[in-house]
Design a protein around this nucleic acid. Structure first.
Lengths: 167, 167
DNA sequence: TCAATTTATGTTGCTAGACAGACTATATTC
DNA sequence: GAATATAGTCTGTCTAGCAACATAAATTGA
């Protein structure tokens, strides 16, 4: 990789304000394209995968926590989960302790589905990072993760699941 | 939140496929929130700023190039530029060499406006990165920039996200 | 030169998705 | 037990983006 970006001491900060936004947008776009292709056949696509993944790995106690974690509006989450329930990858089960709430759990089939798509998603992520050296890709992942957790902590709409943040 | 750690002992990279997407989404969300606040009074908001900034710094020869650079659909670009023209920050001038094309140039007022908002945007970006050490923030900027250029090179213009907010 | 094709931009209308607000059911608090 | 808060759902509205069409101008090719 050439040092076309920066490398000279005097110009190490962003040359133009707003570039960070452009960079983020581009990277996200690249990610989205690859991700979309990877989970195209999954019910509800990207978001379906994200919900299923969060359900399995984060085990949120109710829909509100799930929505807060993924920053998905609760009204959106409703029909998103409807789709996943129809595809039999998750179930809504009433919380016995609080009958207002419903817990979303993955079915056996759902766990299997997730495993399949996780491989594809991992490949998509590797493909996105393919242009970087391994070390660089690793540090980028670490730094983005740190930043993301900062944002998630300080951002409104992420209240009730802070316990899940520290993974 | 127990299962996410169990499968891959000693892993150094992202534990769960899909995490990169979550991280990117979070960071973009944080950026967007700050950016939105910073350019709230600017005509056409975030995109208005991005267009104006690209016009001044990239000097694209026509709308198509401008749209491709920002990954904004040309039909969207039309009314986006309409707004900016109405606010007198840019002008459409016909390209004398190709009268189909129009070149977008910033007015004096537009350049001044841009200068004002660039300061705010720079502050917003600094605020987003405030949680990281200076060195880390710098490397993150460099790495994201490299990755973004990779993506931009391999992906001919398509649809944006802003979504940003969405993912 | 003139018709066919391509390119640059603008316009219209459709659709999906996001969000606000109303509504139901349950919990909590005083 | 009345008032208030919370979880989830439903409904309506609004917007962004896209496809499809329109227009004008450049290019190509006979």
């Amino acid at each position: 990789m050439t040092e076309s970006t920066q490398g000279r001491p005097g110009t190490t900060t962003a040359a133009v304000p707003g570039d960070l936004g452009w960079h983020l947008g581009m990277v996200l776009r690249g990610y989205q394209t690859r991700f979309e292709a990877a989970v195209a056949e999954m019910p509800a696509g990207i978001r379906g995968f994200q919900v299923l993944s969060a359900v399995v790995h984060k085990d949120p106690p109710n829909q509100q926590a799930l929505g807060a974690h993924l920053a998905i509006d609760r009204t959106v989450l409703t029909y998103l989960i409807d789709t996943l329930v129809a595809a039999a990858v998750v179930e809504r089960i009433p919380d016995p302790a609080d009958r207002r709430a419903r817990k979303i759990i993955a079915t056996e089939s759902g766990r299997h589905t997730l495993a399949v798509y996780e491989d594809r998603v991992a490949a998509a992520e590797a493909d996105l990072l393919a242009g970087l050296e391994d070390d660089d890709a690793r540090s980028l992942g670490v730094l983005i993760g740190r930043l993301a957790k900062n944002v998630h902590r300080t951002q409104p709409g992420a209240s009730p699941c802070e316990a899940m943040d520290n993974l």
